[in-house]
Structure formats: structure tokens, C-alpha cells
Design a protein around this nucleic acid. Structure first.
Length: 644
DNA sequence: TCCGAGTATT
């Protein structure tokens, strides 16, 4: 291999085969070229990316030591390349060897930022503190990039206090320092303090700073502040850069100002995958999944290719629509394009199938998922709960614990919801105690609401009241509503009056509790009181939001308001609904309403299909077979059931 | 191209 060729290959080839790397090593040893630090740095980059196994990483370090570099430059390149290639532990290992004299050269000003970045990727605060100590001892704390990397390190490890301290100790600060501190507070969820940092800034923010502060505005829901940032930037730059523009769209989305988000989104000259994801997820979050799918279709026309993040978002749109057809299409797309099945994508697929009524498919995909996280388990438990399989929800929870996944607050909301819908009072009680005692989780309002609902449905009114009394926070209308629901079931007029006294104190309580109370009166034949209450509601200008259901017929979804009867397939829909209601009655289930329904017609040979599940299939004259699934898609505190 | 900060997901 001629020397000139070696130089060119190391500098420009994206990846060298192992044999070429060996020959390059030999040539570097014998030719005297090893004195060229920049060339060795290129060689180090190839060494770092050539192997994915850890022992080989140590070999890479040794190979470089063997060439006796005269400065730290090649080692710095090795470390950065390791981190970039996803091997931060190899990078830290190389740093540790270098810092303890494993080579003839000492770390230089570039070494510490590379080491600290590796620690950030590792998420290792211990390693980070070691690197900090080395930086202090070796006298690198005077360098701005080292100080900035320290602020980033502590922020990334969730140590906001240390990040602030590292920032305060700086003799000089630039825009990177400020952005790193801002980002530390944002990552730590301390959004108000992040805005405080932004207000404190005494230099001009740049795109990175603005993108970060916009996240804080969005998470706080302070649209005035977000708008001010947006306005300031537009005034200054005339036009939004794509990155800041995307952050602006997301800020408006998080503030639930979808019109503004849409307006900014529509004004973009070009849109990347982040723009589309921000817009589509905004529509999903604001309960407009129909439009979310429309925007997704527009994206496909525009030629931007969906990635796994976007597909997860689209799957959640399909899930909240109950649109099995679209969900299945996205699932097939993921398979067809070989999209990586990370925990996010897998969870979204499982959640979609569960919410579209295909619990069996959800279960089988869940078992096949290569990567699971807490959310994956939560989605599966929620699937069982949603379908009224409380016992299986609890079993799934137990397997989760057995698999070594610590449950979080959401886990307990879903599993307690499962207990609620299946009347598993003892289990619910046990899990609620487990959550507090073993997992040291403080129950949210939702958990107390679940317990009130659980006891209330079972007729344990006193226990339900005790839960409310024990709550450290003020019960919301939902919790009172759960108790009112129990009053309705058990005809407790006096208690419902007392409840209403509490609810009156709550501002903007909505119409739900009034409707519940009027139902309590109705059950007790107190029609005068029903009228009085309705009068009170109209006096307060309250309107009951009409209940709506989603029905999918051969892939096309339609939304129905309560009582609406104009649909092409209305007769078949009513047939299926009446079967469902009979089934609900038969099973003595807690559920009282059907919120979604999927109908599929298939041309079949009736003779060969007579043995299929009779309940889930209805024969329609004209040799068409109607298959259906139905259930409720309402929050866990409400009743839920589903059938196949 | 040996160093430090930023936007979208369940």
C-alpha cells in the first residue's frame, strides 16, 4: 500500500475492512508516518468503528498505544468516535487508561470534553464526577468547552443543582453555557426555572437556545411567553429556521393552540420529518385523530418518508380512532420497510391493536417484542383492563414485576382500572398498598379516583368515602363523579346531595356530575328534582357534551352522536348493538355503554364457516358475513368492556 | 472531521 494511498484512504474512506486496517497499522509502524497526529486521528476513527465487541475496543486502544502517538490528539479522536458509534463505555475506558498513564502522552484540552460527552451518553454520574476530578487536577477547568461540558453532564444526569453550581463557578460564559444550563432545567422537568434562566441571560440567544426555551414554554403551557419568543425571533430573522420553526409548532401544540401551530406549519417553505411529527402528534393530543390521519396522508404525498417516531404517532391516532384498518396498514408498513422495532414502536402497535379490539393480536405481538420498557407493559395491562379482563391485567402486572420491570404510577392506574372493571376489590386493595409501601409511589388523584370507583361499584360506600377523606389533595369532579356513580347504582340520594355540596365548590366542574345526580333522582323517581337540576344547569349555561361513538365499517370510520340514526348500515349496526347489550346484561358486567364498533363484511361460503364463533358473527342475507368487535374507549375511571 | 448547547413518540 503506497503511503499516499494510505493517507487518502484513512482520511476519506467511510469504513475500511479489517484486513486493510491491519495493513495500515503495519505501514504506520514502519514508515514513520505515525508522527503525523492528524493521520493517526483518522486511523483511530477507523479503529473505533471497526469493531462492535468490547474486548476489541481494548485492542483498538492498545493498537493506538503501539504506534506511540506524540500527543493526545489521536486518543481524543478515538474517544469521540467511540461515543459517536454508540460505544461510550469504550470511550470512557480509553479515557481512564489515558488519564492513569496508560500511554506516554497526557490528556490535553480536547480530552476532557470528549470524556465528559462519553459520560453523558453513559448516563454515568459516577464516571462524570471522576472525569470532573481529573479535569480539576490536570488544570483544565479554565477551558470554556470543559466547563460547558460539565454543565451538560450534570444536567443530563438529572443533577440540576450541580449544573447550576458548575455554571455559577464559570469565569466567562457564552451562548453554549447558557443553553446548556437551560437544557439542564428542561431535562429535569424544572420548566419555570428554565424560563428564569432565559430571563437572566445577558447575551443574545441563538437557535439552540430558542428551541430549548420553547420546550419549556410548551411544557408549562404558557402561550404568551412562547409567542413572545416566536415574535422576537421572526422580527429579528424575518423567517423561521426549520429547527426553531419546528420547536414553535410544538410549543403551540403543547399549549393546545392548534390553529396557531397549523398556521406556522402551513407557512413553512419546506418541512422535515420533525415538522410533520410535531403537527400530527399535536392533532392526536388534542383529540383530533381524523385530521391527524389527513395530515399523514398529505405528508406521504409530499414525499417525506415516515420514520419510527412518526409511525408511533400515527399508530396512536389509529388507536384513538379505533381505526383497525389504518392501524393494520401502519403495522404492515413497519414490517414491509424493516422499520426498527424499538420499545416505542412495539408499544404503539400493541396499544393500537388493544384499543381497536384485537386483544389477541396485541398479546401475541407483545410477547414477540424484542425490546420492552415500562410503557410496553403498561399498554398491555391497559389492553386487558380495557377489555374487561381484570384478572389477566393483574397477572400481566405480576409478570412485569417478575421480569424485573419496576412499575410506575401509570402502571398502577391501568392495573387498578382493570380491578375496577372486574370488581376485584381485594386485589385492588392489595395493589394500592403495594404501590405505596413497596414501591414508595405517592398516589395521584387518579389512583384515589380508581379506589373510590372500585369500592363504590362494589357497594362499599363507607370505604369509598374513607378514601376521599384520606386524600392529600382536593378531589376532582372525576373522583366525586365516581362516588356519585355509586350513589346512582345504589340509590343513595342523601349522599349524592352531600357530594353536590362539595362539587359546587369546584369551579368549572362541567356538566358530568349534574347529569349523574339527575340520574340518581331518576332512579328514585324524583322527577321534580330532575327538572330542577336541569333548570339549574341551563341557568349556569352548562351543556352536556353529547356522547359519541366511533364505528368502522369495512375500514371506513364514522363518528356517531348519541341517538344519531343516519348511516348506510344503521340496521346492521343496531342488530349488533342489541346483541352486545344482551351480552352485557348476560355477563352482569359493570359496563353500560358501547363506544366503538368495528364491522367487516366478507364474502364467504356459509357452509364452510358455520363453526366459527356464533356470537361474534352475524349472517346477513345475501351470503355476506358480518364480523364485529365492539367495546368502550373511555377513560379508565369509566366502565369498560369488550367482546369478540 | 480531536472539544461544548437545540426541535418530534407510547
Amino acid at each position: 500500500m503506497p503511503v499516499s494511498f494510505l493517507r487518502a484512504a484513512l482520511a476519506s474512506a467511510p469504513k475500511l475492512p479489517a484486513a486493510a486496517l491491519l495493513r495500515a497499522h503495519a505501514l504506520l509502524l514502519t514508515s514513520g508516518l505515525a508522527a503525523d497526529a492528524a493521520l493517526l486521528a483518522h486511523f483511530a476513527r477507523h479503529l473505533a468503528t471497526a469493531h462492535t465487541r468490547l474486548p476489541a475496543h481494548a485492542d483498538a486502544f492498545r493498537a493506538l498505544v503501539h504506534l506511540r502517538p506524540r500527543c493526545a490528539h489521536p486518543f481524543n479522536a478515538l474517544m469521540s468516535s467511540f461515543t459517536l458509534a454508540g460505544h461510550p463505555s469504550a470511550a470512557f475506558h480509553a479515557f481512564a487508561r489515558l488519564a492513569s498513564g496508560g500511554s506516554l502522552v497526557r490528556p490535553d484540552g480536547y480530552t476532557l470534553p470528549a470524556a465528559l460527552k462519553a459520560c453523558v451518553r453513559l448516563g454515568g454520574i459516577g464516571e462524570g464526577r471522576q472525569a470532573h476530578a481529573v479535569a480539576a487536577k490536570a488544570g483544565f477547568l479554565g477551558r470554556l468547552p470543559v466547563r460547558n461540558a460539565l454543565v451538560t453532564l450534570y444536567g443530563a444526569c438529572g443533577e440540576c443543582g450541580d449544573a447550576r453550581r458548575a455554571f455559577d463557578e464559570m469565569a466567562e460564559r457564552d451562548v453554549v453555557s447558557w443553553t446548556a444550563l437551560l437544557s439542564a432545567f428542561v431535562r429535569g422537568g424544572r420548566f419555570a426555572e428554565a424560563l428564569g434562566v432565559f430571563a437572566e441571560m445577558d447575551i443574545v440567544p441563538n437557535e439552540a437556545t430558542l428551541s430549548t426555551v420553547l420546550v419549556a414554554c410548551g411544557r408549562l403551557g404558557v402561550v404568551r411567553a412562547g409567542r413572545a419568543v416566536h415574535g422576537w425571533y421572526v422580527k429579528r430573522e424575518r423567517e423561521l429556521s426549520l429547527t426553531v420553526g419546528n420547536a414553535v409548532v410544538d410549543m403551540y401544540v403543547k399549549c393546545e393552540k392548534l390553529d396557531l401551530a397549523r398556521w406556522v406549519f402551513d407557512s413553512f417553505q419546506t418541512r422535515d420529518i420533525v415538522s410533520w411529527t410535531a403537527m400530527i402528534s399535536g392533532l392526536v393530543q388534542c383529540k383530533r385523530p381524523h385530521e391527524a390521519l389527513e395530515v399523514f396522508n398529505a405528508m406521504q404525498t409530499s414525499g417525506v418518508k415516515p420514520d419510527k417516531v412518526l409511525l408511533s404517532t400515527v399508530l396512536s391516532a389509529c388507536a384513538s380512532l379505533g381505526s383497525l384498518e389504518s392501524g393494520r396498514w401502519v403495522h404492515e408498513y413497519v414490517e414491509r420497510k424493516g422499520i426498527e422495532w424499538d420499545a416505542h414502536v412495539g408499544t404503539s402497535v400493541v396499544d393500537m391493536y388493544a384499543k381497536c379490539g384485537c386483544l389477541d393480536i396485541a398479546v401475541s405481538i407483545f410477547h414477540k417484542m424484542p425490546f420492552k420498557n415500562v410503557s410496553s407493559w403498561n399498554a398491555m395491562i391497559n389492553g386487558f383492563a380495557l377489555h374487561g379482563h381484570g384478572r389477566q391485567a393483574v397477572e400481566c402486572f405480576d409478570s412485569m414485576i417478575a421480569s424485573g420491570f419496576p412499575p410506575n404510577e401509570i402502571t398502577f392506574i391501568t392495573v387498578l382500572g382493570g380491578c375496577c372493571h372486574s370488581g376485584l376489590v381485594q386485589e385492588g386493595r392489595r395493589l394500592f398498598e403495594l404501590m405505596k409501601q413497596s414501591y414508595k409511589l405517592s398516589p395521584w388523584e387518579e389512583h384515589y379516583g380508581c379506589m373510590v370507583d372500585l369500592f363504590g361499584r362494589a357497594g362499599l360506600i363507607q370505604e369509598a368515602c374513607n378514601v376521599i377523606k384520606s386524600m392529600p389533595m382536593r378531589p376532582s369532579v372525576f373522583t366525586w363523579g365516581a362516588l356519585l356513580n355509586a350513589c346512582q347504582t345504589h340509590g343513595l340520594v342523601d349522599l349524592s346531595h352531600q357530594i353536590l355540596m362539595h362539587v359546587h365548590e369546584l369551579e368549572s366542574s362541567g356538566s358530568g356530575v349534574y347529569v349523574l345526580l339527575s340520574n340518581v333522582y331518576a332512579v328514585n323517581d324524583r322527577w321534580a328534582d330532575v327538572r330542577k337540576l336541569r333548570g339549574l344547569m341551563s341557568e349556569k349555561e352548562m351543556h352536556k357534551e353529547p356522547g359519541s361513538s366511533v364505528i368502522e365499517v369495512n375500514g371506513k370510520t364514522s363518528e356517531f352522536l348519541a341517538g344519531q340514526k343516519n348511516h348506510l348500515n344503521i340496521d346492521e349496526i343496531w342488530d349488533v348493538l342489541s346483541i352486545l347489550m344482551k351480552q352485557i346484561h348476560f355477563e352482569g358486567s359493570y359496563a353500560l355503554s358501547v363506544n366503538w364498533l368495528v364491522l367487516e363484511y366478507k364474502e364467504v361460503d356459509l357452509a364452510s364457516d358455520v363453526n366459527s364463533s356464533a356470537l361474534a358473527r352475524t349472517y346477513i342475507p345475501g351470503k355476506r358475513l358480518l364480523t364485529w368487535r365492539g367495546g368502550c374507549l373511555i377513560p379508565a375511571q369509566e366502565s369498560c368492556v369488550s367482546f369478540h
